[in-house]
């Protein structure tokens, strides 16, 4: 099935890079590198050059921290979305928010995707997506409250829980009027999950792919990679790419990333090994 992300449509065999662009002073990986709007704008141009099809703009870091109210979140992202929309008409703009009021404002400013990283915490977000013909990313958090860390959460079967929640969320979005082609699911590694949960989700990602909904994975430099290798933020690229390769083999479609070039190479290589993508240019031994 065609993937429809707002104004943009993609055939069902393509993989997409979603580059993270933070409008925050305190996100874990870049620590505010793109807090200044011009820096964030430059970052967008850079990832577009690197081949990213999507940018995911976020105004609030996922981890606990200073309370950011709706007005401040809007100040961080709405005018920025408008500016990016004007400069990059071919780019898919996603906004990482759980709030329907923010969702509405960014859709009016030109956003194509609402990336609800907190799994439907605001039930009206799907209505906003439907009203604006935007796509929605349905994530699994195990019921976690936005911006909380997992604490002694256990699942009988984390993959079954993820599938049940994200498919229910997906159907709820469709029932609310979101185009069926515009619904993406994300098991949300590390959200409401410890490292063992995120590893199991990675290992069994094919079960999420088998639901038929396009799967987004957000693995980039996360703690499950860090804990698996005992490496701090900044030294997790290789581990991230290993998890990326496993996800690509399973058939994930969208990769939410800090490093676009490296991820694109890994995903293309794995897709080529899997026989879903031809080599770029093969002549050796054939001429």
């Amino acid at each position: 099935m065609t993937l429809k992300l707002g104004r943009h449509e993609f055939p069902d065999d393509v993989t997409l890079m979603m580059a993270i662009v933070n409008r925050t002073p305190d996100s874990f990986y870049d620590k505010g590198a793109t807090w200044a709007e011009d820096k964030a704008f430059d970052r967008v141009a850079e990832v577009v050059d690197q081949g990213a099809e999507i940018v995911d703009i976020g105004g609030i870091k996922a981890a606990p921290g200073a309370f950011i109210d709706e007005d401040e979140e809007k100040r961080r992202v709405v005018s920025f979305v408008e500016r990016v929309r004007g400069a990059h008409p071919g780019l898919v703009i996603s906004v990482d928010t759980w709030r329907s009021s923010v969702g509405r404002a960014v859709c009016e400013a030109g956003a194509d995707v609402l990336n609800d990283a907190w799994g439907g915490a605001d039930p009206a977000l799907v209505d906003v997506a439907a009203e604006h013909d935007a796509a929605i990313v349905c994530t699994h958090t195990g019921g976690a409250t936005p911006r909380t860390r997992p604490f002694r959460i256990e699942y009988d079967d984390v993959v079954a829980s993820a599938i049940a929640d994200v498919t229910a969320y997906a159907e709820r979005a469709v029932a609310a009027g979101v185009d069926r082609r515009s619904v993406v699911i994300d098991p949300a590694h590390d959200f409401g999950k410890n490292t063992f949960h995120s590893l199991e989700l990675t290992r069994r990602l094919d079960e999420l792919v088998a639901t038929g909904w396009p799967v987004l994975v957000s693995l980039s430099n996360k703690d499950f990679v860090g804990e698996s290798l005992d490496l701090p933020v900044g030294e997790r690229l290789t581990g991230t790419l290993a998890a990326t390769a496993i996800s690509a083999l399973a058939g994930a479609r969208i990769y939410r990333v800090h490093e676009v070039v490296e991820t694109r190479q890994v995903v293309d290589m794995v897709s080529t090994i899997a026989g879903r993508r031809p080599p770029r240019r093969a002549i050796r031994g054939l001429a």
Binding site: R280, R281, A282, I283, L286
Partner: peptide, 8 residues
Amino acid sequence: YASIDDPI
């Protein structure tokens, strides 16, 4: 033996 970019 097709490639994305045809070498021939």
